[in-house]
Design a protein around this nucleic acid. Structure first.
Length: 112
DNA sequence: GTTCTGACA
DNA sequence: TGTCAGTA
């Protein structure tokens, strides 16, 4: 996982910031969390701490909702996208191994 | 002052 | 979803 990717998962934003960035009410944001569309971390006093990825998810949620999808639909859409990403990660790592093997053989050939 | 949970017209 | 109550 890249460094910038980790930073996007840094849960540091308070409700007030998320409200302004997404133009959603805190009532809506809490509602989406109840339906497991987002899973913010909790800080001192049980206050929610959102990451940039959470912001992104919320913006997507807003679009899907406008498109007429239910919260259950959206949850499944996210799950499906996640499965695809993991699948792609598997393809990528397997491709990396193949290339490494090939380079190793080439190096062996050149030394003989 | 801000955020949280639960509840209800 | 909005909003009000009672907290932390």
């Amino acid at each position: 996982m890249s460094s910038s990717e980790l930073q996007r998962n840094r849960a540091v934003l308070p409700m007030s910031t998320v409200r302004e960035l997404t133009l959603l009410t805190d009532r809506q944001i809490r509602y989406y969390e109840q339906h497991e569309l987002i899973t913010p971390k909790r800080g001192k006093g049980g206050q929610r701490r959102f990451s940039l990825n959470d912001i992104d998810r919320l913006l997507q949620i807003k679009d899907y909702l406008d498109a007429g999808d239910s919260t259950a639909d959206i949850k499944e859409l996210f799950a499906k996208a996640e499965r695809k990403n993991q699948q792609q990660a598997g393809v990528d790592s397997s491709l990396r191994r193949s290339l490494q093997d090939e380079f190793a053989q080439i190096a062996r050939f050149n030394n003989h």
